[in-house]
Amino acid sequence: MRTRFDEQLNTLGQELIKMGALCEEVISLAASALIQKDDALAAKIAPLDHEIDEKERQIESMCLRLLLQQQPVARDLRQISAALKMITDMERIGDQAEDIAEILPFLNGRTLPEHIEIREMAKATIKMVTDSVDAYVKQDTSVAEAVIASDDIVDDYFTEIKSSLISLIAQNPTEGEYALDLLMVAKYFERIGDHATNIAGWVLFSVTGEKTYGRPQTDETEK
């Protein structure tokens, strides 16, 4: 019974895992390009983002077809609707990695000041994305909950970086533009953390049926 439907759900899961892997790759690239000041790495980001966009469209139509053909209920309904929501967050992660890549040329190859913890922030954000995909792959609620909890860590990094940058400008007003560019980068990492949190939230919903809501989203401001 229902072999075909199970196969389709299985394929949906595989595709989501692929899209998740692309997200991990794109954000790692953005972080490496920033830290190693490597333009060649930065150039790889835009094509990867297009690949993510393509995957989103592909998974979206799979989900819509499944909703139409199978009229899913219970666990199946949760899995498919969670997938539809997750791909939106994954697609945004791709966009934000690309946004970071666009800022990198303006940093003029400068070495990041040691006391500005943007490397640490990037590392923490990458971990959130990796773990949220991992939580999905393993359907593991404890991993998902850990991702949601670690959003605060990334938020704290953002606040600290912001005050470091404010003092940087205070000490040397000509650093204003550089500081603002770095602040933007930090903000994008912070938003990527939010999307990873959302993904983890949808994993929880898919497994348990419980909805968790993070902070209200302000997607308009980041376009």
Binding site: M1, F5, P72
Partner: peptide, 18 residues
């Protein structure tokens, strides 16, 4: 019941597993 059934048997029935 159709989004989050409490019993495994309900889940299996409504999702067409038996």
């Amino acid at each position: 019941m159709f989004s989050k059934p409490a019993d495994k048997r309900t889940e299996d029935y409504i999702t067409g597993r038996f």
